[in-house]
Design a protein around this nucleic acid. Structure first.
Lengths: 343, 343
DNA sequence: AATTTTTACGCAATCGGTTGCATTAATAAA
DNA sequence: TTTATTAATGCAACCGATTGCGTAAAAATT
């Protein structure tokens, strides 16, 4: 199988008796090239099947029109929708999207950051691994003026773009929703306290309890490792076997919340009467489980689009300036059958 | 903000008094470079924070170590898991992964194929858009000897790598499962007949009916556009309002199947006694819905890994030769509560 | 008509690795 | 010791697009 020779701007130049510079400028709509020439060049390019070589352009510009994504796991509803939003915005702007998953492992995150850097991406979108506390692997991007957008799971200290929801407020709202439904003993399924999202949700939970003069009980605040289905079932079983079991659960994600519903039902505990449950994320399973899970909305698509936009707009900006813009999106309680109506 | 000068192999060359060629070869473990030199070069590279420029290497080699993915929608369980599998295998081999979604639109698919080509990917993994019937946009890859792996939704005619499940057999098994549970009138939620997956599932369905001497009734074979939740509800309602409603449904995906369960329950139809339902894919919702949905397994992660492997191994192969290998994976009935046990 | 400005384009260097073809030094074989 | 090999490295061209600077021709201005 012979490989066809690719057509380059040099071929176009020869064909049209122009210099490669003119071809290049014509293809990029450079203002110093006449409309007529531009049209001619583009038509010819189309006709002969010219395709630009991003690698060559990228090398020359020292940056490819590519956004890199570094997330824990692709195959989770929130993340895949986030990526979808990024991809859509990026593609509209003529950018490609590189993905990599850390599997919530710090070392993978470091390696992937380097690998993405090697492709001279023009921006990086990151959702941190569960236990990442050191951010040196992002420094090289900063050194090169490459914008970083942290999304959802963001560092507290690192100076950069951030796109988040108000997790504190969300935790507060979720807990308040349970309280207003009549819950007196509310357990919390908490994620890693290294991560802002889980730390803040927990704070919101605690402050809501305080607000309503409910006691904060250590044994009702369960630290999870991964907020998985299995973990959720185990924890729920233990909780319900307590002499004084909780009458409400605020879970930091839907997966664990759904497992709680299933476990509680199996144990004959009625939902929401004996145990009200609210989750987080509005995953597809949350509206399918029975009773349907009340949860907090999580605008994944929008967060993705905003993140991409931050990067796309970055080059237009005064450097130094707005490098640390934080976008905080709103979330709301999605009340369904797993919690009681406000009494 | 000043941008730090990046360190290149030329800097390493100067630092170590070697030529750039030697540095390059050392970094790539070329056999003609002494172990000592290799070690020295790599240590120095590490120390001074050298990072290779993929764009430069890619330009020279006319191919970047990158796998391109072209799928309809990222945020679907099957697809995001497929991507996860691809990403994992690719990264292990030092490859990056570019993603793009067609949104099941032919024109997007064409554009994205070109855009991915522009990045000189070393292989393309495609799951076709719903209505794609022309494959000219893939020709440029063939012309350049760039391997294409079609996965799940594959063309019938295009000569290329393919990774699929045996959809015919799966359709047959699913239908047989319903029949053996006692169903006599089985409806089928069918997808676009342009796509192998849906066409073959339907054939399997039909042949199973024939096998068991059940009549094939046109009005029970429902052509869906997108197999969405909304579509599923509408169709189910109509079906159940027939004078002679079906007692079983084989849906070509889980989304529509779950919607059927929910709709049937709402209408007071008992599942599986009056209506047995089996879906396809084993999406997370299928085990959460009540009654839990029987479905066909769909080895997304494995399909992803195999697809990536095809591309990674491609360069090792005799060209011309095995360019059209087809990998067919097995699927099984996952029997749950939405179908009756074999009688 | 002479001068200035604008328009439209070309020249050539550059981005950072890679690699075929030397070349030199070191080792082995004769 | 001489010659043949082998090992280790350097030279220089190349990949394809971009862009600062220069220039000729056309248009505008005086």
């Amino acid at each position: 199988m012979e490989i066809k020779k690719e057509v380059t701007i040099y071929d176009l130049a020869k064909e049209l008796n122009y210099s490669p510079s003119t071809i290049s400028r014509a293809l990029n709509n450079h203002k110093s090239i006449s409309k007529k020439t531009i049209k001619l060049v583009k038509q010819t390019a189309e006709r002969v099947g010219y395709r630009p070589n991003n690698l060559a352009a990228g090398l020359r510009n020292n940056k490819s029109k590519t956004i890199g994504i570094l997330i824990p796991h692709i195959n989770r509803p929130f993340v895949s929708t986030l990526i979808s939003g990024i991809e859509e915005a990026a593609r509209k702007a003529g950018y490609n999207v590189l993905i990599s998953q850390s599997y919530d492992d710090y070392k993978n995150e470091v390696n992937n950051a380097h690998t993405l850097y090697d492709s001279r991406i023009s921006g990086l979108i990151v959702s941190l691994a569960m236990e990442t506390t050191d951010f040196a692997h992002f420094q090289q991007f900063v050194d090169q003026g490459i914008p970083i957008v942290f999304v959802d799971r963001v560092p507290k200290v690192f100076n950069s773009y951030k796109v988040v929801i108000d997790n504190y407020s969300a935790g507060y709202k979720a807990t308040k929703h349970l309280i207003e439904g009549g819950c007196k003993r509310i357990a919390h399924f908490a994620g890693s306290q290294h991560r802002n999202v889980y730390e803040e949700r927990k704070k919101g939970y605690i402050d809501a309890l305080k607000e309503y003069n409910l006691p904060i009980e250590k044994e009702l605040i369960i630290p999870f490792k991964t907020l998985s289905f299995e973990e959720g079932k185990k924890v729920t079983k233990k909780l319900l076997e307590m002499k004084n079991p909780p009458d409400g659960i605020f879970s930091a994600n839907d997966t664990a919340a759904v497992s709680a519903i299933i476990c509680a039902k199996k144990m004959g505990v009625s939902i929401p009467e004996e145990l009200a449950i609210i989750g987080f994320n509005d995953d597809p399973i949350s509206s399918i489980v029975e009773p349907a899970l009340s949860t907090m909305s999580h605008p994944a698509l929008k967060m993705g689009k905003i993140s991409a936009k931050r990067i796309l707009d970055h080059s237009l900006k005064d450097l130094d300036k707005l490098l640390s813009e934080v976008s905080v999106l709103n979330t709301e309680v999605i009340a369904r059958a797993s919690t009681k109506p406000i009494s």
